[in-house]
Design a protein around this nucleic acid. Structure first.
Lengths: 184, 184
DNA sequence: TCCGCCATGTAAGCGGTTACATGATTGT
DNA sequence: ACAATCATGTAACCGCTTACATGGCGGA
């Protein structure tokens, strides 16, 4: 097998996959649906990427083929080494500082446009965030929250989304206000 | 020259460079310092990247060499086409939904660790955000805000940082609270 | 003279996106 | 029979990161 040492900077897709395999074995196809669902808000991944990474993970013996099914289906299960690696990632690697925000980059250069256009842009941001917030509130109501780990930490993640989105809405509205008061 | 049509999905580095060249001509070296400074919080870029992109931008005639200096220094200036492209990006392209948050991805899988370790992680996040917020407040105080575009929109960007960071701090503290109340 | 800064460029590798390609199985 | 879904894999391209490489100029 390959050394497993070496670079390994971000590599969070690996750990997302490992995390999803903790509870039960799953195929690439199964995992993909998880990425299209709840996880897409936090760590999107494409079909191509998932299958490629699963093969690499199996090569590194962090997961292994547990069961084969019809249509070439391969169910992967986490290995002991895989769980160790997941725990290592959670405890020993520090999160990479969140960067690269093209919304804010535009704000930086809004002076190139007219004051009115600048206000339009920020108004649009507020409206988008507002709509997004409605969706999250609906999601919160419609979900049955229990005491399972998934539920507890899922609820905490959702709360982040709620606060983050509300913050963006309020900030954009505040910015519009700042620009409206002031002469061109 | 090249077509300038075709893909062009994100490409925000281009527009960051165009934006920085609006006010005055600058060399790659000058621009790099801007990326290391105020812009690094919003759109980081490396030396390698900046020089490569400047060459491409010149090839597309969105910028042009304005003046040569000692040590092979090349000062670039925005062309009319460059300004048009910047405006187009600001008004006609919609921001890409902000995704991929490895902090939150970890939260998703915190159930793999003990309750205590989970609390430690979230406590760490709160502490980091708190420290970051101090820095931003200091920056706000130390800056002279006037009525220029750069100042107005710079202030709006900073406000985003302040609200975003405070939100993360409060959310993490709230999450710790949620976990502390509840049995393992 | 020599150190530090100014200044630019190239190459390798990686993760992510898009597109292409193929085929088996199930339900109607 | 046929469509929808299940299921996997590969190739090309792009932007970003890291590292390597080179050299001119100014001041102590």
């Amino acid at each position: 097998m390959s050394t497993l040492e070496g670079k390994m900077r971000g590599m969070s897709l690996r750990h997302a996959l490992l995390g999803l395999l903790v509870d039960q074995p799953a195929s690439g196809y199964d995992l993909l649906k998880r990425f299209d669902g709840s996880l897409s808000a936090v760590w999107p991944a494409t079909q191509s990427q998932v299958y490629t990474e699963l093969t690499k993970l199996a090569g590194d013996e962090l997961i292994r083929v547990w069961k084969a099914g019809p249509r070439g289906r391969k169910e992967y299960a986490l290995t002991d080494a895989g769980l160790v690696e997941l725990r290592r990632w959670l405890t020993e690697t520090k999160p990479t500082r969140q960067r690269r925000n093209d919304v804010l980059l535009r704000v930086f250069f809004l002076g190139v446009l007219s004051r009115e256009q600048g206000i339009d842009y920020l108004d649009g941001l507020a409206a988008t965030a507002s709509r997004e917030l409605d969706g999250l509130h609906k999601l919160e109501e419609e979900t049955d929250w229990d005491d399972s780990d998934l539920s507890v930490y899922g609820r905490i993640s959702l709360e982040y989304g709620l606060r983050y989105t509300a913050m963006r809405r309020d900030w954009a509205a505040w910015a519009v206000d700042q620009l409206t008061d002031r002469p061109e």
